[in-house]
Design a protein around this nucleic acid. Structure first.
Length: 180
DNA sequence: TGGCCGATATGCT
DNA sequence: GCATATCGGCCAA
């Protein structure tokens, strides 16, 4: 089990988004394997553009958590990236492996496939507090690299209306634990 | 200061 | 497949 180092997040955003697929993530003994990520940089859909005040951390840091609120009631988790420019990776789905009962309680759902199959679901299942915004990712999350290189697929990002053609969504190919 | 919009999830038809 | 909850962030005025 090799821990993810802070240096990983200094790399270009697309590389980080791809490299995070297959990583084991846990917090307080609850977590799983990352199956889906999306990259955001300085494209038209990025919060670095559309929320340039509250998402300034995307430009100023790498390896920090960026938490945003959407539709009034949901929170989503990103890690900032790229030492040379603005960027962040949105964590969209996990394959739950640890602490399933705790996830079920927090989510109010029993089906494993419905525990972490979306960015706001994952945020709740992990029991995160929005106050982790700005903290170092490796301080809050336990992250370890996969032993073998996973098979990663790329495609367009989900739920956006701008820059819809960029293939900046990465998934663990064949996984049953994805959003949508 | 008002109005618009959104990197979503859920429940209903 | 479609409606809608619900509210912070942003910018035009």
């Amino acid at each position: 089990m090799t821990p993810v180092s802070d240096a990983l997040f200094a790399r270009p955003t697309l590389e980080v988004a791809r490299a995070l697929i297959g990583v084991r993530l846990s917090v307080g003994g609850v977590g799983g394997v990352i199956t889906e990520t999306e990259a955001y940089a300085d494209d038209a859909a990025s919060h670095y553009i559309t929320r340039r005040h509250s998402a300034a951390i995307m430009g100023a840091t790498h390896g920090r958590l960026y938490v945003y609120r959407i539709y009034g009631m949901h929170h989503c988790l990103n890690v900032t990236t790229d030492a040379e420019g603005p960027g962040a990776v949105l964590l969209r789905a996990l394959e739950p492996t640890d602490g399933l009962e705790q996830m079920r309680e927090r989510r109010g759902r029993d089906a494993v496939r419905d525990l972490c199959s979306g960015p706001a679901k994952l945020f709740v299942a992990l029991g995160l507090d929005p106050a982790v915004n700005g903290e170092a990712a490796t301080d809050v999350l336990s992250l370890s690299l996969p032993s073998a290189a996973p098979n990663v697929a790329a495609g367009p990002r989900i739920g956006i209306s701008k820059a819809v053609d960029l293939p900046w969504r990465f998934t663990l190919r064949g996984s049953r634990y994805l959003s949508r």
